[in-house]
Every structure is written in C-alpha cells, then in structure tokens.
Amino acid sequence: MTTPAKPHAHAEIGHPVPMKVLAGTLAALLLLTVITVGATWVDFGAVANLWIALIIATIKAILVALFFMHLAYDRPFNAVVLAAALFFVLLFVCFTLMDTRAYQDDISAHRTAETTRSPP
C-alpha cells in the first residue's frame, strides 16, 4: 500500500469512504436530479438546454465516480483507466459526427433532385 498504515486492524485493504461523505453524495445527486428536471421547464434554447442537461449529468457522474466508486481515495491509475475510456468514446462520437455532417449536403441535394425529377 502506498499510504502509511494506520494502527487499526484493516487499514491496508481499501479506503473506507466516510459515511457522511456517502450520504452527502446521495443528497447532492438527488438535488442535481431535481435541478436537471426543473431546468427543462425553462427555455434556454434547444442547444443550451441540452448542454445544461449534459453538464449536470457529468457533475453527477463525477460525484458517483469520486465517492461511490472510491476514485477520490483510490490510486490515480484507476481514474486514468476511466478517463481513457471516456476519451476514446469522445473521439469516437466526435469523429463520427464530423463524418455524418460531411455528407449532409450531398444527401439534401440528392433528395431535392429526387423530388424534382419525379413530381408526385
């Protein structure tokens, strides 16, 4: 273990997250859930509302990862694994979105050509 062992019996296996922290995390998660539902009643514009929802979800995910999943107390290497997975998902989504946007003009042109060629 990397941390200096405390005298009590099971200090060397894992790090118990204090119950206060766990309860506080749950309270914060529930509060954020209420906020994210409430935010949909306010119109910030479609894009802004999506980003607000995603940011709140990410805050919730970080809370879960840090405290419920012990990442705040774990060796940082476990967090690196998680961050790497998320990074590659992000790469995947971004490149795919770039690609699908690249053909949108062609698709639109094709559709208009189709409809003009054979009128209903």
Binding site: R75, N78, V81, L82, A84, V89, V93
Partner: peptide, 20 residues
C-alpha cells in the same frame, strides 16, 4: 480493483457505440 476498472472501461466503450 484495477482489473475491475479495466472491465468497466470495456463496458463504457460498449455503451459508447450506442451513445454515438
């Protein structure tokens, strides 16, 4: 724990395709 995190990474990648 580390092995579990590796498995969870593959789970996140699995769902990543659907999120994409």
């Amino acid at each position: 724990v580390f092995g579990m995190w590796l498995f969870l990474a593959t789970e996140i990648l699995l769902f990543g395709g659907l999120f994409c």
